[in-house]
């Protein structure tokens, strides 16, 4: 669809100052927790993906950096034999938008927690959640909501049932819409239809509240997912006592965004009334093995462009500037 929106935003004084201040504050927070900055090149010379901004450098097709995690992973796999445990980044990525109103050039700050294969990952996941919990305060948001999910809750039952890719895709699309009736429509007379439909209803039964984790026990895959459930319960026990004021913690069992990438716990940060998540991340243990490194990783990205938009359209959500 042709659109004429400012896909390459020029930031004027107020927004430019806010971006500089937020970048500095967030990188300071990450540095204080042991995260060291890496700055991958803005230009990708290999693996030019669809959706990136591509151009010819002489005869060579290259692309602008479209995703920090992917750029960093390539850099780390190429330049390091042992994984640096904590990495941070800040800058712009350029990506063709899915929604017509999104910008192509987007400003981000984020971090990656990388470990060797076989190391316990529970503490790293909680470390990232704690960091994300501190971010609304750093940004001056009056209130925020942190959603905890787990990609394995959907991925593992689909894998266990051996669903063909197109059917699995239809089920994930239905869950993404939070539409259990669409799950039933998609599965029709598949032998696993009743089990997977019941699982979808369990995942969608509660968005928050004390019974959210209990809903998972009603799933036909409760046994298969026991480890994930216990892991989520342990994370909640660690995080709830240290919840900052004005931050709500919610469990979102049906979070399937980025399911092709995430393999375990997921994190999403919202502000009340915001139309898009302001930060997102999770565990993606298949990325580095795909690049020939037996490493596990998790991380999150703060979407500063969305925050700048929000500060412009909903200044009431932010504390007044000093």
């Amino acid at each position: 669809m042709p659109v004429r929106t400012p896909h390459f935003p020029d930031l004027l004084f107020g927004a430019a100052a806010r971006l500089r201040r937020w970048e500095g504050a967030l990188m300071g927070l990450l540095e204080a927790h042991g995260y060291r900055e890496l700055h991958p090149s803005l230009v990708l010379r290999e693996a030019v993906p669809d959706g990136s901004l591509r151009f010819f450098d002489g005869d060579e097709l290259v692309a602008l950096r479209w995703d920090f995690t992917v750029s960093l992973a390539a850099l780390l796999a190429r330049r390091f034999t042992e994984p640096p445990p904590r990495v941070a980044y800040a800058g712009a990525v350029f990506r063709r938008p899915v929604q017509p109103w999104e910008a192509v050039e987007r400003f981000e700050v984020g971090c990656e927690r990388i470990q060797a294969e076989g190391e316990a990952t529970g503490e790293a996941d909680v470390e990232l959640a704690r960091l994300l919990m501190a971010i609304p305060g750093v940004l001056g948001l009056k209130g925020a909501i942190l959603h905890l999910g787990n990609a394995a809750l959907v991925r593992r039952p689909l894998e266990a049932e051996g669903l063909p890719p197109n059917l699995a895709e239809a089920v994930v699309a239905a869950l993404s819409r939070r539409a259990p009736h669409r799950v039933r429509e998609a599965l029709a007379d598949h032998p696993a239809a009743a089990r997977l439909a019941a699982h979808a209803e369990a995942l969608l039964a509660e968005l928050d509240g004390p019974h959210t984790m209990e809903a998972l026990k009603a799933s036909p895959y409760a046994g298969l997912l026991q480890e994930e459930r216990e892991r989520m319960e342990r994370a909640l026990q660690s995080l709830l006592p240290i919840l900052p004021p004005n931050l709500e913690l919610r469990v979102d069992l049906a979070d399937v965004a980025g399911l092709g990438f995430y393999t375990g716990p997921t994190l999403r940060l919202w502000a009340p009334g915001a139309q898009q998540e302001l930060a997102a991340g999770g565990r993606y243990d298949r990325l580095f093995p795909g690049l020939g490194r037996p490493w596990q990783a998790a991380g999150f990205c703060v979407r500063l462009s969305r925050l700048l938009d929000l500060a412009d359209t909903r200044p009431d959500l932010f504390e007044p500037l000093p």
Binding site: I145, L207, W270, G273
Partner: peptide
């Protein structure tokens, strides 16, 4: 007929 909701509104202001 289907009841639809804005993703942001539903997830950020349940």
């Amino acid at each position: 007929a289907r009841l639809v909701a804005a993703r942001g509104a539903y997830l950020s202001e349940p």
